[in-house]
Simulated scan of single mutants.
Amino acid sequence: MPLVTAGVVVLDCAEPEKLAVFYKELLQAQETDVTANLVEVRAADGLRLAFRRDANATPPSWPRPENSLQVHLDFLVEDLDAAERRVVELGGRPLEAKDGPGPYEERSCSDPAGHSFTLRRAHRAAPKQG
């Protein structure tokens, strides 16, 4: 067994209950833990996200070049257009940013509290030939 294993990605925000609903719906996740200051959800693939109350939380200002990205999440999707529409339906928004380098087709978005994340097309492995 490894000494350290991956735990939970925790996002600070002013209203964890509302942000948990956004990600719960986006990921079709289940709530696993709710306290006065923290809500945790677990997606079907095992990803655990928690949202911690911070009354002084301010959203990251990325993609402004004078500010760092800090941290963001990448979500793999089959249909970029459908995933982006779902983000907007749930209260998130697309971010105006240049396409990132690399071979992946992707779109940058933010959740209702301003945390950035990327929707990235999931490429299926091609079957092996001969």
Rank of each mutant, 00 (worst) to 15 (best):
A122V: 01
A36Q: 10
V34Y: 05
E84M: 09
V87E: 05
A29G: 09
E89P: 00
L11H: 12
G130I: 03
E78R: 14
G91N: 12
L76Q: 15
R85I: 04
L26Y: 06
D74R: 02
A6S: 09
G130L: 09
A44N: 13
G114A: 01
R121H: 09
D54R: 06
T5G: 03
A82L: 07
L73Y: 01
D45R: 15
E89L: 06
D111H: 11
D33W: 15
L27W: 12
E15T: 06
A43S: 13
E31V: 15
V21N: 08
V88G: 04
T32G: 07
G100I: 02
L69R: 11
F75Q: 03
D111Y: 12
E106T: 01
V87P: 04
C13M: 08
A55S: 11
Y23K: 09
Y23I: 04
A82C: 05
E105W: 02
L119Q: 02
R42K: 13
T32R: 08
F51R: 05
R85D: 13
V88C: 04
R93E: 10
A122Y: 11
K128L: 13
H123D: 00
R64A: 14
V8R: 14
G92M: 11
Y104R: 06
H115C: 02
R42W: 01
S108I: 02
E17A: 14
E25M: 02
P60I: 00
G91Q: 14
Q70M: 03
A126C: 02
D79G: 06
V4C: 03
A126E: 12
V71E: 00
V39P: 00
E106H: 08
L69D: 02
V8W: 14
A122L: 15
A57G: 02
E17T: 07
L19M: 03
R64C: 10
F51S: 02
A126S: 10
R48Y: 01
V71L: 11
D54F: 03
E40T: 15
K18G: 00
E78D: 14
R124T: 11
Q28P: 00
E40K: 13
Y104T: 05
R107A: 06
F117I: 03
F22W: 06
A6H: 05
G100Q: 12
